[in-house]
Design a binder for these strands. Structure first.
Lengths: 227, 227
DNA sequence: GGCCGGAATGAATCGCAGTTCATTGTTGGC
DNA sequence: GCCAACAATGAACTGCGATTCATTCCGGCC
């Protein structure tokens, strides 16, 4: 009803809807197995992080992401189900890398204090590794959209869980005070580090991740040390 | 070019653009002085906070806010310049109330420890006072949109400033350690409280603001106490 | 009752942006 | 060279939503 103008340039006809296309499953998408390895896949992901960090998710049209990645708008949909999917994937990958790193280091680092210090340091270093990703984490992940809220909350919970476990072990070993809840400590630690990172991200300040982490953990550990 | 259908229902003509309207300044807006007192003004503000807390700024059409406030879409523009303006106003008011409260209490509360504890408590209590506003603070304020970023950052800075001053005074008086920067302490405190609040907001957990604030400040103050 | 000023309304405008898909390029096998 | 098969393209589609503004409603006044 609305649009009086019909397609004039290209004309679309024949092969109306018949499911006779070759590829069986998804209508038209790069095969699952090839995606992560593909160069364009990565380019799109990187471009999305860049653009979204600059302008915010809702102010980043797919066309802008595509342009930055040097591909056509439609190509994005060859590799991702939707615009949401791009952002979700980017965040997931970052978190998984973080957990992998922590898990790896925990194999050789056994003391609760050292473990907490290590987490703080990696958390703060994320800024240096990929500034755009850090910006994105400090903004979009904070649930500007409900669809991100749900799955990003899951990651947060996992982080807190890891810290809580370390704290609880420290309490059992008599290293940490037992009169403060491990949950409160975990949230305090996460919150403190995160706010420092956040403030650095927004003011563009540069800092030494190791030294800053040390200061924060000095206060915190000092505050929760038993005796 | 695009739209073939022209207005059919109401027809618009005459008085094309001439600036002969009665009210001089803004084209058609409730007089400045009357705004804040007006009942509709407040209704729209409240409705906006509610709706945006539920769905997020970009997923909250003006029409939804208007409906919730029980006014027509156009009425919103009688009281506010734009959709942005509504959100900005709501946030500004909340912060100003917070500062007013803190300032007032500081008149009778002089010890650095007590002052920090009071700030923590008010901060945590904000959840109880207006849950929707708390949600909004934890989400939209975190810069999902650049236009909010700029002015909300200003508020954050002010908060940190207040805490820093208290910490510095505590250091001068020899109550707090001097080997940790007041800035780091301020960010830690803000971050810790904020994260606790955030987590409560998202999980829907209920907590006792006074007791929780006490625990957090116990750890923090214990961590920064001199001697 | 008729008129006036201003508040309120909500349909229409208009531009934008997510997604689709007919068409075009490219590659490798014959 | 020719022909699949498949990746890539980008114009067109479509629906949504911020904002405008001609029109209606309302209260006070003559």
């Amino acid at each position: 009803m609305r649009h009086a103008l019909k397609r004039l340039g290209r004309k679309r006809q024949g092969k109306t809807t018949g499911p006779d296309s070759p590829s069986a499953g998804a209508p038209a998408m790069v095969r699952e197995g090839e995606k992560p390895g593909n160069e364009k896949y990565q380019r799109i992901l990187d471009a999305a992080v860049e653009v979204i960090a600059e302008r915010g998710y809702f102010q980043s049209p797919v066309s802008a992401i595509a342009r930055r990645a040097g591909v056509a708008d439609g190509t994005v949909y060859l590799y991702f189900k939707s615009k949401d999917d791009v952002l979700r994937t980017a965040i997931d990958r970052t978190f998984n890398k973080f957990y992998g790193q922590v898990e790896e280091e925990f194999k050789t680092l056994k003391g609760p204090r050292e473990q907490l210090e290590y987490i703080a340091q990696v958390h703060l270093e994320s800024h240096a590794v990929n500034r755009n990703m850090a910006i994105l984490m400090q903004t979009e992940m904070r649930q500007s959209a409900k669809f991100i809220a749900e799955f990003s909350h899951h990651h947060l919970v996992k982080y807190i869980q890891v810290v809580r476990e370390v704290v609880r072990r420290g309490q059992q070993e008599g290293i940490f005070r037992r009169d403060v809840s491990d949950g409160v400590v975990a949230h305090c630690m996460f919150g403190a580090i995160d706010e420092l990172l956040s403030s650095a991200v927004f003011t563009g300040r540069i800092y030494d991740a190791k030294a800053t982490a040390a200061q924060v953990m000095d206060v915190l550990l000092n505050g929760i040390t038993a005796g």
